[in-house]
Design a protein around this nucleic acid. Sequence first.
DNA 1: CATGAATGAGAATTCATTCAT
DNA 2: AATGAATGAATTCTCATTCAT
Lengths: 195, 195, 195, 195
Amino acid sequence: MTLENASPRRKELVGIAARLFVETGFDRTTVRMLAQAMGIKSGSLFHHFRDKQEILCAVIEEGTQRALAIARRELAEADPRPRARLHAMARAHLETLLSDRNAHVAALYEWRRLDAASRERLVPLRDAYERLWEQVIDEAIAAGIVTGDAFLVRRFVLGALNWTVRWYNPSDTVGEGGRTSEDLARALVAMITRE
Amino acid sequence: MTLENASPRRKELVGIAARLFVETGFDRTTVRMLAQAMGIKSGSLFHHFRDKQEILCAVIEEGTQRALAIARRELAEADPRPRARLHAMARAHLETLLSDRNAHVAALYEWRRLDAASRERLVPLRDAYERLWEQVIDEAIAAGIVTGDAFLVRRFVLGALNWTVRWYNPSDTVGEGGRTSEDLARALVAMITRE
Amino acid sequence: MTLENASPRRKELVGIAARLFVETGFDRTTVRMLAQAMGIKSGSLFHHFRDKQEILCAVIEEGTQRALAIARRELAEADPRPRARLHAMARAHLETLLSDRNAHVAALYEWRRLDAASRERLVPLRDAYERLWEQVIDEAIAAGIVTGDAFLVRRFVLGALNWTVRWYNPSDTVGEGGRTSEDLARALVAMITRE
Amino acid sequence: MTLENASPRRKELVGIAARLFVETGFDRTTVRMLAQAMGIKSGSLFHHFRDKQEILCAVIEEGTQRALAIARRELAEADPRPRARLHAMARAHLETLLSDRNAHVAALYEWRRLDAASRERLVPLRDAYERLWEQVIDEAIAAGIVTGDAFLVRRFVLGALNWTVRWYNPSDTVGEGGRTSEDLARALVAMITRE
DNA sequence: CATGAATGAGAATTCATTCAT
DNA sequence: AATGAATGAATTCTCATTCAT
C-alpha cells in the first residue's frame, strides 16, 4: 500500500504540494510554483517524482492515509455507543479536512485529476475509509437514532462535511461566529440523529 | 439583472460551454474545445465573449439564474407547510443540478475560477438564491421540524445536495439502485426532519 | 497623381486614420480602432479601402500632397530673398507637421510600412516636395548665407525639423517654454545661416 | 546602473534583438524571429526574458549605455576647445548610430514602445546622455561659435543626427557619394558653427 | 453602403519535462 | 541530488479580411 519512496524529505515535499494544490488547484499549480515553495528549482523536482501526476498521487495517498489513521484512532478511543462513534467520525473527518487544510482536501477535490493508473491504486484505500463510515452509519441506523437509506445517509453526511472547506475557515473564528470545527461536528450529528 | 449581451446565439453557446465546464473542468477546457463543440473556430469565440473568463461568468450567471427561477416556481406551487417547502427546495436544487448537468453545477464548482470583478457582479445573485434557502430553513426550525443552528443547517444541507454531482449519475438508474433525484430529495428531507 | 476615389467622405476617413496612425503607430492601429473612430463597423471599412495598406497609402499621399501645397503657397507668398524663402519652407514644414499633427507625420514616420507598389506610386510625390527644399537650399548656398554640401544640409535640416514631432507639443505652450512653431522655424534658420 | 541580469549569454541575445528591432521594427519583429536569429526555440526565449517588453528594455538600456560610454571616451580624448568637443560628440553619436546599426538606433526609434515602468527606469540613463550634449552645446554658445537657444540647438542637432539612420547607409559608400560618417559629423558641425 | 458573424493565420506566452554539467 | 538552459506542444487571444444578409 505504501509507495516506492517514503523518505522524510519526500513526505515534507508532499505536504507542501498538498497545500498548494488546495490553495490553487492542481491544474493551476505549476511545477515551478511547487519547486519554489519547496526551495528547489523545477528541474530538481523530477529527482523526487517522476511527473506531476505522481505528486498528486502521493498527496492523495497521504491525505487518505491520514484520514484513515485518524478516524481509526478516534473510533478506538471513542465511547462505543453509536452516537458517540458517529461524532468521533465527524470530528476526525473535519480534523483532517480543516485543522491543517491538508492533503485530505486535495484527495477529495482533485480526485478527478488522477490518471487511471493512480486511481486504480488508490481506490482500495479510499474504500477502506468509506467502509468505516458505512459501519458507523449502519450501527446508528440499527440503533434507531438515524433513519433512512444507509447509502444515501452516508453520501449526504460526507457531502455536508466535505463542503465545509468551501465556506468554513477554521483560523477565522470571529468571522465564523466563533464556531469551532468541534461545534460543526456536534451540529451535524445533532441534525441527523433523533431522540 | 440580465447582462450586457443576451442574444439567442450567445445563450446557446453558454449552454454548450456549461456542459464542457462540468464535464472537463474550467481549467482543462480549452478555447478550442469550446469552439469545436459550438461548431465554430476558436477565433470566432472572441466575437461573442471578450475572453474565457467572460464565458465562465456567463455560464455561472445563467446557472444561478435558472436555479433561482426554478426554486421560486417550485416554492410558489408548493404546499405552504414547512416540510413541503423544504422538499420543494431540495427537489428544485437537485433538478437544476442533476437533470441536465447544467450551468448550476459549474456555478458551484467553478466559482473559484471567477476573477474578482465577475465574482462581485455575481455575488448578489447567488445571495438571492441562498436567501430562499434561509427562509425555508428558518420556517422549518420555527415549526420545530428541524433543530439546530439555522446557518449550519443551511450549509450542511447545501453541502449534502451539492456533493450529489460527485457520486450520482441520474442517467444510470440501475447503478444508482433505481434512485431518482426525487428519491434523493425525499431522503434528504427525511434525514434532517423529525416527527 | 490623384487616387481612384477622392470623395469628401473618404477624405474625412483618411484624416481620422492619419490621427490614429500618428498617435498609435500603423502597426498597432487595428482596423477595428480605425472603424470605431470613424463611427462605422470594421466590416464597412473595406467598402472604402481595399485593405489596411491602402489606408496608409491614402494617408501618406494626403500628407505629402498637403505639405507640397502649403510649401508652394508659402513660397509664392514669400519675400524672394533666400533667407526668407528658407524661413518660408521651414514654417510650412512645421505647420503641416505640428499644427494639426496630421498626415504629414504619418508620411514621414510610417513610410517604411508601405508595400513596394505604394511606395513606387508615392516616390515621385515625395521627390517633388524634396525638390522644393533642394531649390531653396541651393539658393541659400549660392547666396552665401549657408555653407556646405547641399545634399547634407538638406538632410540635416529635414532631420532637425522632422524630429520636432518627437519632443515638441504645440498645444502645450507652457511646457515648451512658450515657444511657438514659428519660433522653431526662426531658430532653425538662424542656426544654419550666417551674416 | 546595470540591471537584474547581465549574463554574457543574455548580452549576446540582446545584441541580436537590437539588430532585428532596427531592421524590422519592434512591433513587426516576432518572438519567433528573435528566437530563430538567436538559434533557440521561441519558448526558450522566456527563460532569459520575462516578456518581449523586457527584451526591448534591455536593448534600449544597452544602446544608451554604449552611447554614453563612447561619448564620454571621445570627450575625454578630445581637444578641449568647444568646436572639437562638439565634433567629438557628433562623431560619437554617429558611430553608435551607424557603425553597427546597433541598439542605439532602437533606443531612439522604439522608445515609444516601452511600457511605463521600463520608461521610468530608463529615463535617468537617457537624461545622462543628453546632459553631455547640453554641456557641449552650452560651451559652444558661450564661446560664441554657435548662436541661439541652447535647448533648441540641442534638439535640432540631435534631430539632424538621429534622422541620418533614415537615409544614410554606411556600408554603401558609393550610393552615399563616398561620404563617411566622419564626413557627416564634420559637415554638421560646420553647418551650425561660424568663424 | 452597412453590418455581424465568421475565419484562419499567427501572435505572445506557459509549462511539464529533459538533460548535460 | 541539484541546476540552468532548452524544448515543443499547447494555450489564450488578436486581427485583417470575407461575405451573406
